[in-house]
Design a binder for these strands. Structure first.
Lengths: 346, 346
DNA sequence: ATTGGATCTGCAATCGTTTGCATTCGCCGG
DNA sequence: CCGGCGAATGCAAACGATTGCAGATCCAAT
């Protein structure tokens, strides 16, 4: 029955010191495992500390050491009127990031920000609450990122590299992934392929480019009515697809900018009495863990989030160490499942 | 073009002080909006600080103030061999918690712990990294929670109240919700209802009790073979359901302990050529946002996570303020959708 | 006994704020 | 012109750790 941290105020280092009959300096060194303090005494002090349930106060430690051993992970929620993290993509990424960060003994400080917000990044950086910042998705915040990165190194962003950009991004080959997906739809004989997503967001913009490239290389015309700038939430995507159906625009395939909205689209399609993939083939993007469990299972462009998260953290720690780390693009893989197969014979 | 935090080392309060020609004390008071400093000077100092991109260093502030304005949110991942947060339930809860906590101006420190881990709670508490702790789901950690709560007040746990328990829980009426779900299945004429989940976890245990109660009040016998202790992950649940099907145990309904495994079960059932709800009715628990988008849409027992999160945070802040806050049970609501409807005529 | 060196240990400064207390300033009435 | 009072300001001591440097201790060699 190990004693558990003082009843009232938690023990401080000086308390352990007086118990052990030494100075705080010695306790500090002992707990840090410094060879400066004799092994015997060191063990004794460690035992004492453990029994007293003593843990160094990290605030004090951080102040002295000028670091916090904490990484801020920020999730900008563009267009997501509702508060909750609705997109599994963010969540899965968050999970992997949390793993990678805690593995290095750092803490994860979670920040949700909803974009029309000023100076959040400079403030976050200046507050000294964390040693580095990871931003999941640049959302509409390219400007802010750009500005801060000019003087703050330990910043890594998940997303798309832009031409004029100085901050470090890690992301998937959006163009390649998208064009492969669309090429696949074309090979399946699909004629009218809808792009479902808002190209004004950096990553989606690149996916849109991939879509264009695939159409072009197959000499297919681009039709404006096939561009449906749906936002990345289930509800709005469902509504957007319903609208599209009501509008009588004809199409036999959908390339959705994310799995979340792909699933919503399927929802809306089947609700309207269409079959997937019989009447309409659907391809998503992300390969969230639900994709495989969808009904039908979703064909999608896979982003390797685990690798992505590891890479971001790696890069971030390089930058923390003063090295320079540049942007990376990771490969995307087309995962073929049920949601885009043979076209139904009418 | 507001100046953005010094190029190299970030400004400290003393810098602002010398710029303004006053002492750090005055700057501190000015920034805190204290009426002790003359309004004119106060405004001047604030302007200076803003222009210099100065933000108080929260580590130093925290040390002095003996608080961190941070809440730890810990997610114990029982039985989840894989690292990522697979269950949308956790994620949604996390999202709501993050909202409620940031609304109060506090930060969220995320901690994932995978249970065979010693002393994580006492250490977390003693480290002083946060002012309070919220644990999502007691998992297998009842003991640890119990011990720590005896001396650490600001601790709130999502989960089930236990008889001998002293820590503060917030949770749903698991028994009531479960029994209503099972009663519903019985009313629909289902004869063999499988309980799908591991009753050794506190919350699931209560749902199991509700299941028993419903069977009993309908004078139905309990059959051991109808208890399938599936773990709360998609993969293992899928496997468990497949096994069950292979075992030739007959059943025409499933009450699943969570939506995640309910969806997996449906997956497995349809993969085996059965229809839902035709051959087998399925009811889940949680009402995660995917439930409505499932195919078929999932009938489930709704937990109001937003309210739950708000309640937990509320209770936590009460405890931080020294008041006492006791456990609460929130109502559960049966949401009837497609996955449990009429039985197919054979 | 003295010296030298290796090995430990403790003093005191430091990290950047906040705040109780003392002090200074300005101003008004006498 | 001075006493006195309130309002505004600064001094210095915390907060709880880490660490360079100097000093203490001990043993062996001279």
């Amino acid at each position: 029955m190990k004693g558990k941290g003082g009843h009232r105020a938690p023990a401080k280092m000086a308390d352990i010191a007086s118990m052990a009959g030494v100075s705080p300096s010695t306790v500090s060194r002992a707990l840090a495992g410094s060879p400066l303090v004799a092994k015997k005494k060191r063990d004794e002090i460690m035992r004492l500390a453990r029994e007293a349930g003593y843990v160094v106060n990290s605030t004090a430690r951080n102040l002295r050491l000028k670091r916090t051993e904490t990484i801020s992970v920020v999730i900008p929620l563009a267009h997501e009127a509702s508060q909750p993290l609705t997109d599994p993509f963010f969540v899965e990424m968050l999970g992997y990031l949390a793993d990678a960060i805690t593995q290095r003994g750092y803490g994860v400080l979670l920040q949700k920000i909803v974009p029309p917000m000023n100076d959040w990044l400079p403030n976050l950086v200046a507050s000294g609450r964390s040693d580095g910042v990871i931003v999941i998705g640049q959302s509409t915040e390219h400007q802010a990122l750009e500005e801060v990165s000019s003087y703050y190194r330990p910043l890594v962003v998940w997303g798309a590299p832009a031409v004029d950009q100085t901050y470090c991004t890690v992301g998937t080959d959006n163009i390649g992934g998208a064009s492969r997906a669309v090429e696949h739809l074309i090979q399946l004989g699909r004629q009218r392929i809808v792009f479902f997503g808002d190209p004004s967001l950096p990553e989606i913009g690149l996916r849109y480019e991939g879509y264009l490239a695939a159409l072009e290389s197959a000499s297919r015309p681009l039709e404006a009515k096939h561009i449906v700038p749906a936002h990345l939430t289930a509800d709005t995507a469902y509504a957007a697809m319903s609208n599209l159906l009501a509008s009588k625009v004809r199409f036999d395939a959908v390339f959705a900018a994310s799995d979340l909205i792909a699933l919503s689209a399927i929802q809306a399609l089947t609700a309207a009495g269409l079959t997937v993939p019989g009447d309409v083939a659907v391809v998503g993007f992300d390969d969230i863990s639900l994709a495989v469990h969808g009904n039908p299972a979703l064909t999608t462009v896979r982003q390797d989030l685990e690798r992505g998260a590891r890479t971001m953290v790696e890069r971030l720690f390089q930058r923390l160490a003063g090295e320079d780390a540049s942007s990376v693009t990771l490969p995307a893989e087309l995962i073929i499942r049920e949601s885009c197969g043979a076209k139904a014979r009418v």
